[in-house]
Design a protein around this nucleic acid. Structure first.
Lengths: 336, 336
DNA sequence: TTGAAAGCGTTACCAC
DNA sequence: GTGGTAACGCTTTCAA
C-alpha cells in the first residue's frame, strides 16, 4: 500500500499535536491561520492523502457503493456504470463493480464480497438465473440499502429503477404494424424475469389492439439470452410453415444473432423481414442494416440509480421509490 | 456501512477475550477445539465479516488493485478486466476501476483517487492524450507498483504487457496482399502512442517487403480514434483520385465507421474494397460482413496483467518484465 | 489556539 | 489455551 505520509509525520515535523494537524488539514475551526498554512504546505509537499482505512474505521462508512451486474463486458451495463460513476464521484463516492456472469451462485459471492468491502449501499441488476431474493435481503438486514435497476424486485423494501417495459413493447409492435407487418415474432427472455413478462404482455396486448392473432409458435423463450440461442431461435422461426415477417427481440446479443441468421437464410432486411430490438444506440447505429430499436438513456439511468442509493444512505428511513425511465423508439433501416 | 457484528460482539457473548476469538476465527494455533467451534458457530450465526478497514489499517495493505482504462464502455477493456477480475479474486484481491475517458486531466484524477483508495498496485492503459508520464511516476515514488498494458510505457521502472504491434500489422498487410490488394490504406492513431507507431512501422515494412509503394496519402492519422473521425477519414480516402482497394484500421470504432461509410458510398465489401481491423472477436463476428481482424486473447491478457502486478506487490524488488502477447489474424468475410 | 486521550476493529506479541 | 495490550491513522471530545 505504499509509504504514504500520515498526519503523525506532519505533526512530528511541525512539532505539534496530531489533532491540530487534522483540524488544520480539514479546514475545521479552532486553528490559527499561520498553523493552517504550515500544515497545508507540508501536506502538499508530502502529497498527503488521508488514510481511508483509518477514516472508514472511525466513521463507520466507506464512501463506496457496490454495483452488481450480470456482465462487465456488455455495453448496456457499462454505459449505465458510466453514469453511476460520474454521479458517485461528484459526491465523493467510489464504486466497486462485481459481475455475476448471469449465475446465482456468483451473485451470492458478489454480495458476500460487497459485505467484506463494507460498501455503504448497492446498486444491482440480478442475473438471468436469479429467482429468489434472499441473498439480497441479507443486505437489507445489515442496513445496507439496495437499489435495483432493470431486473430484480424487492417490493417496497428497496427502490427500483425500471424501464417501462410493457409500454415499450407495445410501441415496438405498433411500429412494426405501421410498417406493414402482420406476423410478428418475439424472441424473449426468462419467464421469471419481470422485465420479460412485462414485455411479453405489452407485445400480446398490442397485437390484440391491432386485431392480429397471437400465435404461440411466434413467441420463443430461449434458455439463455446468448448469441447462440439467438441463432437457433431465429432458425426455428424461419423454418415454420408460415414464417414471421418481423422479429422483435429483447436483448442486443440476440438481435445481432437474428440479423446474422436471417441473412444466412438469404433473406433481405427489411424487404423480406423486419427486425426490431432492444439495442443500445451505439450498436444499433453501427450494425448493417442499422437496427430500429428501443433504447434508453443509459447514462441517465446510472445517475438516477446513484441518486437513489445516495438518498437511502443519507437517510435510512427514506421510503423506497419506483422510478420508471422512459424508453424511446428510433426507427432505422431494419424496419424501413 | 451497515451494522455488521464485530469480534468484540462475539467475544462478549462468549465471555472470552477478543484475541481468542480472532485466533479461533482465522484458524490460528493456540485455541482449544471446543472454543474454536463455538466461535465459528457464532460467527456464522451473526454473519460475521472481518472489517477490512481495521484489517487494512493494521496490515497496511488494502488487497485492492486499481485498474485505469480509457473507457469503461469499450469491449476491449472490459474483456481484459474480466480476466483481471477473475485472477484477482483467486488471490483474494478486489479491483477498482477508473476511466480516464481519454483525457490526461481525468487520468491524473484517477491516480489521485487510487492513492486515496490505497490500492496495492495499479494496472493501467493510458489515455490517447497522454504524452508525459510524471503522474504515474508519483505512484512509483509511493512504492505502488504499476503495470501497463496496450498503451503506456515507463521503461524499466514497471512491467508492460504489450501486443506485438509491428508483427501484427505486417501480418495484416501480408494477408491483404495475398488477397490481391495493391493499394492498402491505413487509418491510424496518435503519433505519440507507441502502439500506433509500431503498427505503422509494421505496415510500411510489409509494404516494402511486398514491393508496394508507400503512399503518404494512404496513411491517415485522425485527431481522435472515434467513430466520427473514422467516417471522415474513410470519406477522405474514397475521394482520392486513386482510392485504396483495402483499408486497414487500428481500432474497432474506426473499423465500424469504415464499414458504414464504404457502404454509404455504394461500394461492396469485399468485392470493391477490403477491410481489416484490430477488432475483438465478438464485434468482428457480429458485423456484416464479418470483419477480418487482428485479435488478442483479451481475457488472458487480463490474467497476465494481474499476475504481474501480484508479483510486484509480493516482492517489491521484482524486476520489471515485458510480456508480449501474441495476436492472431482471423480471416472473415471482409477480405474474402 | 492547541494538546491529550479515547475509540473505531483488528492483529500480534507477551504474559500467565 | 487464553487474556491483556499496543499499534495501525484518524476524528472527536474535553481540558488546558
Amino acid at each position: 500500500m505504499g509509504n504514504i505520509k500520515s498526519l503523525k509525520d506532519i505533526a512530528k515535523e511541525l512539532g505539534v499535536a496530531v489533532s491540530t494537524v487534522s483540524r488544520a488539514y480539514r479546514g475545521k475551526d479552532g486553528v490559527g491561520e499561520s498553523m493552517r498554512k504550515k500544515v497545508l504546505e507540508l501536506a502538499k509537499k508530502y502529497n498527503y492523502v488521508p488514510n481511508r482505512f483509518a477514516v472508514g474505521l472511525h466513521d463507520n462508512c466507506s464512501m463506496t457503493i457496490g454495483v452488481i451486474i450480470p456482465m462487465i463486458h456488455a455495453y448496456f451495463y457499462t454505459s449505465i456504470i458510466a453514469g453511476i460513476d460520474e454521479a458517485a464521484k461528484e459526491q465523493g463516492f467510489s464504486i466497486v463493480i462485481e459481475s455475476s456472469y448471469e449465475s446465482v451462485e456468483n451473485e451470492k459471492k458478489c454480495i458476500e464480497n460487497m459485505l467484506k468491502l463494507r460498501v455503504d449501499g448497492i446498486i444491482a441488476c440480478i442475473s438471468q438465473e436469479t429467482q429468489t431474493m434472499e441473498h439480497f435481503e441479507t443486505l437489507l438486514d445489515n442496513n445496507i440499502p439496495v437499489v435495483f435497476f432493470d431486473r430484480g424486485n424487492l417490493g417496497t423494501r428497496c427502490s427500483h429503477v425500471v424501464i417501462d417495459n410493457k409500454a415499450s413493447a407495445k410501441k415496438a409492435v405498433n411500429h412494426l404494424v405501421e410498417r406493414g407487418c402482420q406476423r410478428i415474432a418475439l424472441i424473449g427472455a426468462q419467464k421469471y424475469l419481470q422485465m420479460s413478462s412485462d414485455r411479453r404482455e405489452g407485445y400480446i396486448e398490442a397485437l390484440e389492439e391491432n386485431r392480429l392473432p397471437v400465435r404461440r409458435e411466434y413467441i420463443i423463450v430461449p434458455e439463455k439470452m446468448t448469441f447462440k440461442s439467438g441463432l437457433s431461435s431465429t432458425r426455428h422461426l424461419l423454418s415454420l410453415p408460415e414464417p414471421p415477417d418481423a422479429i422483435m427481440t429483447m436483448s442486443d446479443e440476440i438481435t445481432f444473432a437474428v440479423l446474422k441468421e436471417v441473412k444466412r437464410h438469404g433473406l433481405k432486411i427489411p424487404k423480406d423481414i423486419k427486425v426490431l430490438g432492444y439495442v443500445d444506440e451505439f450498436h444499433a447505429e453501427i450494425m448493417d442494416p442499422s437496427i430500429t430499436s428501443i433504447s434508453h438513456h443509459n447514462y441517465d439511468m446510472g445517475v438516477i440509480c446513484f441518486n437513489l442509493i445516495f438518498k437511502h444512505i443519507q437517510n435510512p428511513k427514506q421510503k423506497a421509490k419506483r422510478v420508471v425511465v422512459p424508453s424511446y423508439l428510433v426507427a432505422r433501416e431494419s424496419t424501413k
